[in-house]
């Protein structure tokens, strides 16, 4: 008797757990289909390649795409080397002591700092103290601070996957520590670092709060020509089209189109990273 009851309970229990996963998958499916069904009709060659016109009620989103691209590149330039450097320090040089514990606590806490707080920090440090003004450089720097914890964690993970024998073999031949790292650790760790890095950058590309007050613009008739220009960005453009535009219902299709471009862009970056990681794992197993 108890056995049968146990069996039924187990079936119900497993059913509930399965349902949980289904709910999660369903949420993703709903988000993607909703955006794609409503957004795909707005997508056209002109939408991708033209600037907004007629008070942003017509035209495309090209400046926002370009702006997001450039700000992500700037983020990459600052956050990748810093993230790699910190990971190299933690995994290759540092000993387990108070200092490294402090670094690790800092990394975990930086990962939890709200993005809007990074925005405030960016305003104070880059825009005001450093006198950069509101510009694409200030936004890129702010975003690179925000993504730094992700970059470090990803890079360290990649370094941990390199067998100790690569380092030992190299050192035993008379390599200095840095030579061993440079010639026999980093070359094999970089592909792994790349996956985490792409994930981090995809997050930066989709973020709005940190760029809100550091450089992004509502509308610009021109593209950013240098590091000290303001820029338009896809996520902010979506925010405007969804809530701040003077005729929200009229531009709803454009908002959907923008959302679709943004979501596809981020999805592609993630998919690329996931595939790359999958391949690396397979290679390692072989």
């Amino acid at each position: 008797m108890t056995n049968r009851r146990n069996n039924i309970t187990e079936k119900i229990g497993f059913g509930i757990l399965t349902l949980c996963l289904i709910v999660v998958v369903l949420i993703i499916v709903v988000i993607f289909t909703n955006i794609i069904i409503n957004g795909h009709s707005a997508i056209s060659w002109d939408f991708i390649t033209k600037a907004p016109t007629d008070g942003m009620t017509k035209g495309g989103i090209m400046p926002a795409i370009i702006g997001t691209f450039f700000v992500t590149v700037i983020t990459a330039i600052f956050s990748i080397p810093l993230g790699m450097g910190c990971a190299i320090y933690l995994n290759e040089y540092a000993t387990q002591n108070m200092f490294t514990r402090l670094i690790r606590i800092s990394i975990r806490n930086l990962a939890g700092v709200p993005s809007i707080v990074y925005g405030l920090f960016g305003v104070m440090l880059f825009v005001e103290f450093m006198h950069l003004g509101t510009c694409i450089l200030a936004s890129g720097l702010t975003l690179s601070l925000m993504t730094l914890p992700m970059m470090i964690t990803a890079s360290e993970e990649a370094l941990k996957n390199i067998p100790m024998s690569f380092r030992e073999g190299s050192l035993a031949l008379g390599a200095t520590k840095w030579q061993a790292i440079r010639t026999n650790v980093l070359p094999y760790a970089i592909p792994g670092m790349l996956t985490g890095t792409i994930l981090g950058l995809s997050r930066a590309a989709g973020e709005t709060a940190p760029i809100l007050f550091t450089g992004v613009a509502f509308y610009l008739p021109y593209l950013p020509k240098g590091l000290f220009d303001q820029f338009m960005a896809l996520p902010y453009h979506l925010y405007i089209m969804a809530t701040q535009h003077h005729d929200i219902t009229l531009v709803r299709p454009l908002a959907y189109g923008t959302a679709m471009v943004l979501i596809v862009l981020v999805f592609m970056m993630n998919l690329g990273a996931i595939i790359l990681r999958y391949r690396l794992r397979k290679n390692r197993k072989e």
């Binding site: 996963l21 993703i28 709903v30 590309a205 989709g206 979506l238 925010y239 709803r252 943004l262």
Partner: peptide, 24 residues
């Protein structure tokens, strides 16, 4: 399959989630 799918959910920009909140 499930693990990357969950990761995809994490990657959706917050502004898109907000937009879904308004429209859906």
């Amino acid at each position: 399959i499930a693990k990357p799918v969950v990761e995809i959910l994490a990657s959706i920009p917050s502004v898109v989630i907000g937009f879904i909140g308004i429209t859906l």
